[in-house]
Each structure stands twice: as structure tokens, then as C-alpha cells.
Design a binder for these strands. Sequence first.
DNA 1: ACGCAAGTTCCATTATTTGGAACAATGTTT
DNA 2: AAACATTGTTCCAAATAATGGAACTTGCGT
Lengths: 264, 264
Amino acid sequence: MLDQKPADGTIGKALQVLDLVADFKRPVRFAELQEKSDFPKATLYRLVQSLTNQGMLTHDPDRMTYAPGVRLLRLAHAAWQQSSLARIAGRHLDKLAADVDETVHLAQLDNAQVLYIDKRVPKQPVEMYSQAGKVGPAYCTGVGKVMLAYQREAVLPQMIAQQSFHRFTDFTLTDETALRKELKAIRDRGYGFDREEHEPGIICIALPILSRGGRLYGALSVTSTTQRTDLTKLEKLVPQIRETAMKISDEAEAWRFPDPHGGE
Amino acid sequence: MLDQKPADGTIGKALQVLDLVADFKRPVRFAELQEKSDFPKATLYRLVQSLTNQGMLTHDPDRMTYAPGVRLLRLAHAAWQQSSLARIAGRHLDKLAADVDETVHLAQLDNAQVLYIDKRVPKQPVEMYSQAGKVGPAYCTGVGKVMLAYQREAVLPQMIAQQSFHRFTDFTLTDETALRKELKAIRDRGYGFDREEHEPGIICIALPILSRGGRLYGALSVTSTTQRTDLTKLEKLVPQIRETAMKISDEAEAWRFPDPHGGE
DNA sequence: ACGCAAGTTCCATTATTTGGAACAATGTTT
DNA sequence: AAACATTGTTCCAAATAATGGAACTTGCGT
């Protein structure tokens, strides 16, 4: 799927293995890993062992399977609390979802893919990790296209190169030319749509979350269905969404300047 | 605090750095890391660089700070979906919390510490990563002691050695002898208490989640306050909690045997 | 302009990783 | 029950990557 990494050093290799295990959606046996990986047996074995010792993988001795380890949860907790927008954005998402009465997504870009950081479904309790951490394609989702649109030109080519351009629906943009044109339109307009490009019947409107300096923090979207609404109606929500995005951005900005007298 | 790791290989060192960054609750500068770490400057620098390249850390060029990276969320998502009990346990926790109308915790052991996997507070929506991934001491919490009690004797000594035995309250067990005695009592009884050992006024009852074969999956607890209830009343909940634990265990067991005809 | 501190790069030395092949343990077929 | 097949684990000399002291660069305050 996606594995043309320069893989700098041992760390890169180890993380490659970690990803490999994570990509199986179930506990996986050593032989299965070996099959999917280019590493020679002994090397892979030692990588897996190291990761297991470190708690990044858990090993089930009975079934002889490996799975992502609990240590990742602890680290993700830390990531959640600071690096990502999530902590700051939480209450804003609550409000936005309640105001517009539609599903709201918060996403960031991770290695040319969309990584969903948070989600709100109106009148429905959130499930914890079941949504956050999910990944999706960038070229055919609202948040994905918006984030690509606000990427620096220098890094865009390699990001576009990583898109699969798989045709999910009749509306999916399936080549670079179409995507480039769409990104241009998004930049001009300041927001983007998903016109049933990923799933039939699912449409959305998405805005970037930008810093004062123009740096991209992430993206925000309101998703609905063609049965409930249409793009024209969604477009009317732009001011509300933009205001939410700006509030999140402002708080993120403030958060990154720690108290100058910050002791412990 | 806690850093006497054998640190096997480069992977261990890299993860040590990752932990270090995570332990700061805010974006951190290189010099701060250097101060807290034993690594020579150049070495630390390259470790941080590798981690950043790999997306395990994010680097803010403006502020010159590092923070845990978004890639961790993706990995944690995977961990959540399979390795941990959380996915399976979710609905059982819902039910238990509603039935007993008290706070319910689900925890696993991570490197001699308690790692909270999930939490339910009755009549209150859950927040996503804000709770899951949190860590706590093992020697003075209900879930922690229970999980220590069902640990194999061979690994216990080093786990106990890693406990700080800090006196949080008048009831905290502050030495190995007292803890050993308590663990014995828990094994005999099949469940454990927290008698305001970690926080004044907070009590809980905890049960292990064991496989048929006696392997420890994690622990389940019902927490309350001395104002609302007492240990005797909590003890009456044991059958309900045990039933929940068994259901979770059974499903976990079943889940680990993938469909024999498992194609994809 | 100067000094100071934080971040970054260099490179010979050192330690770790590598991977082919042998070995052990487990399960399956004849 | 014996031979076989499969999967997981260990060995060790060769190859590679990590190391860290010191030098270099950059940005800031005086």
C-alpha cells in the first residue's frame, strides 16, 4: 500500500514493523509479518522482540500473536494533550455540532493521509479511540483536499504522488490534473467540498484551520447526506465554521506560547 | 522518576526520548530535553531528528519545540481496536456503570504501572483521549493491586521494585511487606479494595479479568467516595462486577481466535 | 562588535545491527 | 509411531549504523 520510506536508521525500520502490525486489523503471527515484510527473518525477529520488550507490541504467548501494545495508548494520550488540536478544539466542536446539528470532523495531515483527530455526531455519545486516529484518503475527502490546498508548493508533488486516486464513486477525482484544479478552486474560495467523492450520498464542506502566520494546523468539516441537505445549504454554514476554525486557531496559537515565568 | 531501563538497542533509546518528550506536558525545546537526558548532545539530537522524520514527534519550527506526533494517534487507534480490551469491553462498561450508578474503570498493566484503558462516569458523556492512556501507580490503587496479585511470581519482584511507595494518604501501603500481604489477601479473596490509599475519600473495589487459562487480561473497578458509600456496600457489587469481568474475558478469548477460514 | 547560548554538523572510533544458516519446538501426514 | 513440514528461535563473523567530542553556525542580548 504505502511503504516507500527512506527508513532512516534502525528507528525507521522498527516503526515500519510497528506500522505493519498495526495495519493488520487483528493479532498477527510472526510468519505473516515475515511474508509482508522485506526484512530477513532474523532481523525482523529481533525488531519485533525489541518492540515487544519496549511495550510497543504485545505478545500473546498462547496464540503466538503480536498486536500493538498498550504503551502506545499512553503515548497517544500525551500526543492528544498537547501536540494535536484536539484538546483545544473539543468544546468548539461540541458547540458547532450542536449548532448545525450535523456531524463534525477535525483532522490533521499525517504523511499525505487524512488523520481524523476528533469527531462529533449530534445527539450521540462519542466513542473513544474508535474514531480518533482513523486515517483516510486525502484526495477525495473534504478535509483532505482542503489541507492539500494549503500545503506549501514545495511539498505538494510528493504528497500528490502518494495518493492512490482510487475511484470510490462516480465523482471521485482520479488524476492529478483534476485534483490540482480543485485545489486551486479551494484556495480561491477559502473552503472545499466533498461532492460524494468518497462515499455515495455523503457530502461535506470543509475549512482549513490556519494560524495567523498562515501555517496549517488542520481542517474542520461538517458532513451530511444528500437526503438531508445539499451543497448550497451547507455553504451557508461557512461563516459559522470559519468562526469556529478561527477560535481554535487562536487558542492553539496562545497555547504554543507557554507562560514566560513557567516554573514547573 | 522512572528510568532504569536496560534500554536494549537503538529502539529502546529512541523510545526513551519519546517518553521524555511525552512526560513534559507541553511542547519542549531541545535544550530542555538535553538537560533531562543522559545522552550526549549529538546523540540526542539525532534521535530526536529520526523520531521527527518518522512522525513520532512533531517539530514546530517557529517556536523550536518538539511534541508527541500525530502518528502516535494512528498507532494508538490500531492498538485500541485490537490489542487492548477496550473495544470488547465498551458496552459492558456502559451497562455496569449504569447498573451500579458509579464510576467504572478498565485498566491494564504497562511496565509495572496502571494504565487506564477506559472509564465510565454515570450520566456523563465520555471524553476521548482525556482519560484513556492515563497512567497511575500500581501499589496504591484497586486495579493496580489486583493486577499485581495475579502476576506470575517470577516477574513480581522487579515490578515491586519499580513502585515508588510514596505515601499519598494515611492509608497508603508504603513498603513491600505490607504490599505482599495485601496481594496475598487479594488472591485468597478474589478481589481487592482501595481503602483511600491513593486519594482521601476515594474508595474502590476491583476485580481481575482473567482468561480461562488464568492469564491476566486486565482489571475492572468500581470507584466511589466515602460520602456515598463504604467498602461493605461496595463488596455487595462483587457478583455483578465478576459477571461483567467474565463476559469481557470470554469475548476477549473468542476474539483472539480468528475465523479459521479468515480470508482477508 | 562582542560574547553567550542554543542548535547543527563532522568524522574517526566503537558498538550494534545484520542475515544466512543451523537449531529447536510444534503440529501434520503417511 | 516415525518421517515430515512448518514456525519460531539462536549463532556469529561481516557490514553497517550509532556514537560523542569538538568544531561550526545562528540568533540574541549587551
